[in-house]
Simulated scan of single mutants.
Amino acid sequence: MSKPIRHFSCLLALTGSVFNTAHAVSFTDPVDGMFDMGEYLAENAYGFLPIPVIITEPAVGYGLGVIGMFLHETEEQKEKRRKLAMESIDGGAQLIPPAVTVAGGAATENGTWFALLGHRRVWKQDSIRYMGGVGFGTAIMEFYPFSNSGGPLQDVGVELETEGFGGMQKLQFRIADTKLFLGVQQFYADSEVRLKNNTGIGSDSFTLAETRSSGLGFNLEYDAKNSFFYPTAGWDFVAEYLWYREGIGSDNDYETFLASSTAYVPIATNWTLAFAVEYNSLTTDETTLPPLAYPDISLRGIPVNRYQGNYTSSYQTQVMWQFTPRWSMSLFGGVGGNSGVGRSNEGASAMFDDMKWAYGTGFRYLIARRYGVHMGMDFGFSEEDSAFYFNVGTGL
């Protein structure tokens, strides 16, 4: 058994031992009598929601791990949420979400592994929002620098190993009494990129570069969704712009821009139609950047980093059916496109030259009713690969 797998097997064992300390906490909901972890999360000092990480991502192979989600509230907030949850099936879910901490990691069969720690918190009745996190690990995967060339090299991949650590922070402020937030953010990563040698002769890898990426920027968000953990109505819009410059510690000069939006439209009782759009761009005058700097097509069923480019976009739709108060299922599908990588002469319009599609189905269980936390699995398929994912939330 590899060292990363042993490490996360111990982490899974620890998860079980924490559950064994919660003898006095009920896992049966007092309203509907169903299995529920809401009381455990609220009343147990060490209570957390273990999120299984069973990886079937084609880019890195099969793997496993666990991420724990901790919710933090004051005693007053807990009592208010408990009372509302006793009055209606979705009572506590409509309140301002509690502070959330996530911690854990995973490892896969090809040697890829990661560990992370993240936190989200709000102040002054959700007038100030903060989110930050750190992580470290090793990613071994194929990169396809000519995926949008249309020539004989478009399916030729290069196996790279990227090892390092990084972190991000985001601070946002609500504008008056609106649903609009403005903020600043920071990103930092220190990594070493190695070319894997699969010939069996000599060293198993060759170092290509050691790079630091350091960026500062701003963000804008409009948030009109009816829930943080599992929205069924409303919409949001997010825009982020970051500058990476030598003057703030970066080895490369470039800029990234992200614009995304999701919308949830109730179309009948217990039915929701959802849409999601995402656009990414990277601009630079430099010849090469760290492989993970370039955005990719982000769709369930398409391998991570399979289709990268200076410009990428994806378009998804999803139908969600809440067929019982606890259980829901969904059908989803989408398309995405990418332009060339590096100092390509292709503009953003090249994203639409060869669109890639993906589709799938999923299910969710309302595992913590007083918080509105839904957890389940998605099964995604594309023209080249398939995978399944454990998800908290809608998956969009």
Score class of each variant (00 low, 15 high):
223 D>W: 12
254 Y>Q: 13
256 T>I: 02
222 Y>S: 07
260 S>D: 06
232 T>L: 12
246 E>K: 09
210 E>N: 14
202 G>A: 11
207 T>D: 13
203 S>N: 06
215 G>A: 04
256 T>Y: 03
255 E>T: 11
241 Y>G: 02
244 Y>Q: 13
208 L>W: 00
211 T>K: 09
258 L>M: 11
258 L>V: 08
258 L>A: 05
212 R>E: 07
225 K>H: 00
250 S>K: 03
235 W>S: 14
207 T>H: 03
230 Y>H: 14
245 R>D: 10
219 N>A: 09
273 L>A: 14
229 F>N: 00
266 P>M: 05
248 I>C: 02
254 Y>W: 15
213 S>K: 05
191 S>E: 14
265 V>I: 14
205 S>C: 06
237 F>Q: 05
269 T>F: 02
253 D>Y: 02
238 V>S: 04
202 G>T: 10
203 S>I: 03
202 G>H: 08
255 E>Q: 14
195 L>P: 00
269 T>P: 01
239 A>Q: 15
192 E>H: 07
233 A>R: 04
220 L>H: 07
219 N>Y: 04
251 D>F: 02
198 N>S: 14
257 F>I: 13
200 G>P: 09
262 T>H: 03
231 P>F: 13
207 T>R: 15
274 A>I: 12
266 P>C: 13
232 T>W: 00
233 A>G: 14
223 D>H: 11
191 S>D: 06
203 S>A: 14
249 G>P: 08
257 F>H: 10
198 N>W: 04
239 A>G: 09
249 G>N: 13
193 V>Q: 10
231 P>N: 03
195 L>K: 10
235 W>I: 12
246 E>W: 04
273 L>Q: 15
192 E>N: 08
260 S>C: 08
204 D>H: 06
216 L>I: 15
187 F>R: 10
253 D>C: 05
194 R>T: 12
200 G>S: 04
220 L>P: 01
208 L>Y: 02
187 F>V: 05
263 A>F: 01
227 S>Q: 11
200 G>W: 09
202 G>F: 13
269 T>M: 04
191 S>R: 07
197 N>D: 03
224 A>H: 13
230 Y>L: 14
224 A>T: 07
260 S>Q: 15
